[in-house]
Design a protein around this nucleic acid. Structure first.
Lengths: 220, 220
DNA sequence: CGGCTCCTGTCAGCGTCCCGTCAGCACGGC
DNA sequence: GCCGTGCTGACGGGACGCTGACAGGAGCCG
């Protein structure tokens, strides 16, 4: 599964690429319209995430050119919130779906998978780690076949650890991801983790004292 | 393959008819609403291209009457460019797609083909989920054999959840899909969902607190 | 034009479930 | 053994979502 991320804002581009890679895509990146157009025209992608405000060639023009040339891969367009005009133009230009900014990475992934499913491909939404089964679309989890009901906050914490598996996530980072503002006591996070652990059992969320939390792929 | 071209501007009508004939359709023409309605009601067409601004009866009324009478042929509506409102009304009235004027004939043909593919192709217009039967062409629903009368808004909500089954749809996304502008209170959506549920019974529309709504394939 | 029906957004009230806080405890490091 | 870090159970305020009622408005019909 190959994806093309077209976005000139370096920070957003990095996040999008990381999220897509975490979902199993091999990701190519383009920071301007001409590069994007060239890549999309000469190579095959299973998914394109396309920002509209691009240097050198506007995103809509890029999309129109692809469509005119018969390139029919699913394209997810990033638009400014509430700008329905952009949306209409996007749809007319051949976009398959649009996502208003700002958005959460999980939502981007969910829509991307929905697109690919519609396109006929199989959106690999279900990931397994030992006896832990995670459905990123339904936002549901099952342990040893038993479905586990997570709240929104718990889910987002787990998903973040999942996307950043392979490294230890500092509590401050997790706090910022979950809330944004930092008005909470640090203990709030600990409470969330505790509830997560009680629901999921051992061997899922680990602690590295003094550093942070991490996802244990190997279920005990 | 028979097509009906409804358009009062003689020049455009001629072009549309020519394009459709070039694509292999046998084309009938109507220049006013009443004639169009009569033809569409009494004869079978595989495709209708419908302009909105018509003498004697508005295009939207024609469309609504057809749908009310159970005529489910694919209808491609021609609207003024950028008229978001017209588009929404058109879809609510039962249009399958719309095309903003001015347009290139190739685009009309492309959309027409896409419509027919959707209507006749394997995209099985009738889908069943347990004792719930949904006809995507007729825009009709039945539960346990009993037909359920949905309003335009309710239908679009259900259809969107259906199209995006396999994932949880955030309320903001559903709101945007239903309305486009964001002027509505969030509660409007809850009201629509509540009415949907009352009509359909349990086991169709589910809620995931903090995330959104989803379609439950497993009817209880 | 006037009356009727149906649709739908808004409002207020209510129940349920979150989840942040607090206090106390367990454990590891030195 | 002491301290600091992190974990846990309990609890209460509050957010979230559901529902019934109501009114404005659009369409339809006479």
């Amino acid at each position: 599964m190959r994806a093309l991320a077209v976005e000139d804002d370096e920070r957003i581009a990095r996040d999008v690429a990381a999220a897509l890679e975490g979902a199993g895509f091999r990701v190519e990146r383009a920071a301007d319209g001409e590069t994007a157009w060239f890549l999309g025209d000469t190579e095959d992608f299973d998914l394109v995430v396309l920002d509209l405000g691009l240097p050198r060639m506007d995103g809509l023009s890029v999309l129109r050119r692809w469509r005119a040339a018969g390139r029919d891969m699913p394209v997810l367009v990033l638009t400014a919130r509430g700008s329905w005009q952009e949306r209409v133009e996007g749809i007319e230009a051949g976009a398959d779906d649009y996502l208003p900014k700002p958005f959460r990475m999980e939502e981007l992934l969910a829509r991307a998978r929905a697109l690919m499913r519609r396109a006929g491909g199989l959106g690999a939404a279900v990931q397994e780690f030992g006896d832990l089964v995670v459905d990123l679309n339904r936002m549901s989890v099952a342990r040893a076949g038993v479905p586990v009901n997570l709240t929104a906050l718990e889910w987002r914490a787990l998903a973040y650890l999942l996307l950043n598996r392979a490294r230890v996530v500092p509590p401050g980072e997790l706090l910022e991801h979950l809330y944004g503002d930092d008005d909470r006591e640090a203990n709030a996070l600990e409470a969330v983790i505790a509830r997560l652990r009680r629901k999921l059992g051992d061997g899922v969320v680990g602690t590295r004292r003094g550093f942070g939390y991490f996802f244990e792929g190997t279920s005990g």
